[in-house]
């Protein structure tokens, strides 16, 4: 019996691993890689939390090239993975082609909210709202009245971060200066900490004493340089306060982890449609923990919480850059 089982598992194990009807969820990370301390890692954290809590397992892949986008989607779908979660807007095109071929598989895609397919859950975030809050904190913490913004790839999505941030800064100090720089125009800009560091130094030399990084893996360089040069920085997506305790003012939380966790928990019964996650439903916010408690005074906290409450109940609206591709507070 034992030998038979062993033989079977040796021979069949392979074909099994190549996937026959495993109702496991799957997650696909974009070319940036999953350990970017930011967006992708946040998605991974959510998946891992689901696995730890339920004892389940999930499939994952970090893409190596563009042709694998569709391939990974199809192979996971054919192997019975359900739901399949994708991290990043770059999947929109491939998903639009693949999803109709697998009507029984549920797909969830983060940062894409314009597909209307019956088996796709699109999850968009109101990054402008969260950025507004950290912008308020930045303006209150700044002594020079000049704050910086380092974006990753120059796309409307990242301009939305920058625009919300600038509005928050201006709300506190209408005379403040916001310096905005983008790391690049290609996906390489998501993972270029050296360039991030250079941009931070350039902004410091222009007087910035708080810098907000919305740049994926590039942000690691921004936060590092800010800590080295003795100014404050603001992290993004995941809570990055712990990276340099006492040097990171706060982090703009984009709860990608929750989105992934919820999708995995719902399993095959995932509700489809387009969802928008903002302050009101806990999709975005700012991070406060033991690492930055000394940096955020009670006055700062109450001002930001008041703004947060009025955004949540709809009495205040933060301008969304992608609505009309323009920003009242800053020009890019």
């Amino acid at each position: 019996m034992n030998i038979v089982t062993k033989l079977l598992s040796a021979g069949v194990g392979l074909t099994m691993s190549a996937g026959i009807a495993l109702a496991e969820p799957a997650i696909i990370f974009d070319l940036g890689g999953k350990f970017d301390k930011s967006f992708n890692e946040s998605a991974f954290t959510g998946a891992q939390r689901w696995a730890d809590e339920t004892g389940g397992s999930f499939r994952e892949i970090e893409l190596q090239n563009e042709a694998q986008r569709e391939q990974a989607l199809r192979r996971f779908a054919e192997a019975g993975a359900n739901p399949i979660v994708m991290a990043g807007f770059a999947f929109a095109d491939s998903l639009g082609k693949v999803a109709p071929d697998y009507p029984d598989t549920k797909f969830a895609v983060i940062d894409v909210n314009w597909l209307s397919l019956p088996n796709v859950r699109g999850i968009g975030f109101n990054e402008h709202e969260g950025s507004y809050l950290v912008g308020m904190l930045a303006a209150q913490a700044s002594k020079t009245g000049t704050v910086g913004f380092v974006g990753g790839m120059d796309i409307p999505l990242i301009r939305r971060f920058g625009c919300g941030y600038a509005q928050g800064v201006m709300a506190v100090n209408p005379n403040a200066t916001v310096i905005a720089n983008m790391t690049g125009t290609t996906p390489a800009a998501w993972n270029d900490p050296v360039k991030g560091s250079e941009l931070t130094k350039a902004q410091i030399s222009q007087g910035a004493d708080v810098v907000y990084a919305a740049a994926g893996g590039t942000g690691v360089g921004v936060l590092q340089t800010a800590a080295d040069e003795g100014i404050l920085s603001i992290g993004v997506d995941a809570n990055q306060n712990y990276l340099h305790p006492g040097k990171v003012l706060t982090s703009m939380l984009k709860r990608v982890d929750n989105a992934v966790y919820e999708a995995f928990s719902a399993g095959e019964n995932l509700e489809t449609g387009n969802f928008q996650m903002g302050i009101a439903n806990g999709g975005v916010g700012y991070a406060l923990d033991e690492h930055n408690a000394s940096l955020v005074s009670d006055a700062m906290k109450s001002a930001v919480d008041a703004a947060s409450a009025s955004i949540a109940n709809g009495s205040m609206k933060v301008h969304n850059y992608t609505d009309d591709e323009s920003c009242p507070a800053i020009s890019f």
Partner: peptide, 17 residues
């Protein structure tokens, strides 16, 4: 083959390269 390894094993993509 590298894509298959990435899909079905825990071999990291860097090692495939």
């Amino acid at each position: 083959g590298g894509a298959e390894l990435a899909l079905w094993t825990k071999i990291p993509r860097e090692l495939i390269v």
